[in-house]
């Protein structure tokens, strides 16, 4: 997993609530057996029509908006446990997703792939949307070490929460398996005493 500490970027705004993982990557694109290439079908049915032509009104087809940060409405990533959703977001080029609420499984999947999900209050989310819709070049700065997200234009910032263990995994590029494997003897001892 790649290491992550700090990022300043413009954002792609998606002010829709309850974006489920079937929207992020529809099931018919889950047939691949590797982790690569899912970005092409990120938000497939919102992004392309049935003939495969880009839909002009979808934000990802609007060159006004770009960046490594996706900002979305509350309850982002609900539904299926498909990790392909996190892979698609990462493969497309997003390092961070900001929302006022994340579904559990998506949040875990994102963290396990080095995509940082940041939960902010509804009001702060509104401030981000306001800033981006006022100026599509508005940038956010995310500092994982300080756990802050800042709207650079206004200086408004929010201190977000992250599990300290997960934080150190992201900063150091570790994954959970490395950690659990280091406890193999403890696992075997547990099995013995059951």
């Amino acid at each position: 997993m790649k290491k992550f500490e700090k990022l300043t970027s413009t954002v792609v705004p998606l002010p829709i609530e309850n974006i489920d993982t079937d929207q992020i990557i529809p099931a018919r694109f889950l047939k691949a057996t590797t982790r690569e290439g899912f970005g092409n079908n990120l938000f497939r049915d919102w992004r392309y029509d049935s003939d495969g032509q880009p839909k002009a009104d979808f934000v990802m087809n609007d060159s006004t908006y770009s960046g490594k940060i996706l900002v979305a409405g509350k309850n982002f990533g609900c539904g299926s446990s498909r990790e392909h959703a996190a892979w698609a977001i990462q493969d497309y080029g997003f390092d961070i997703v900001i929302s006022s609420f994340f579904a559990d499984i998506f949040k875990g999947n994102a963290l396990n792939n080095g995509v940082l999900p940041i939960t902010v209050p509804d009001e702060f989310l509104e401030q981000i949307f306001d800033a981006v819709f006022a100026d599509p070049n508005a940038e956010l700065t995310v500092d994982l070490v300080a756990q802050t997200v800042t709207i650079n234009a206004t200086g408004a910032n929010f201190v977000f929460e992250i599990n300290p263990y997960k934080k150190s995994c992201l900063i150091n590029g570790y994954d959970d398996i490395d950690y659990i494997l280091s406890h193999k003897n403890v696992i075997e001892a547990y099995e013995q005493q059951r």
């Binding site: 446990s81 498909r82 990790e83 392909h84 996190a86 499984i105 875990g108 999947n109 396990n112 792939n113 263990y165 994954d175 959970d176 398996i177 950690y179 659990i180 494997l181 406890h183 193999k184 696992i187």
Partner: peptide, 18 residues
């Protein structure tokens, strides 16, 4: 409960989950 593929790999490797 449902898990993602990275966690499927964790359980394969260790029969445990964090």
């Amino acid at each position: 409960f449902g898990i993602g593929t990275s966690q499927v790999e964790q359980v394969f490797a260790t029969q445990c989950l964090l």
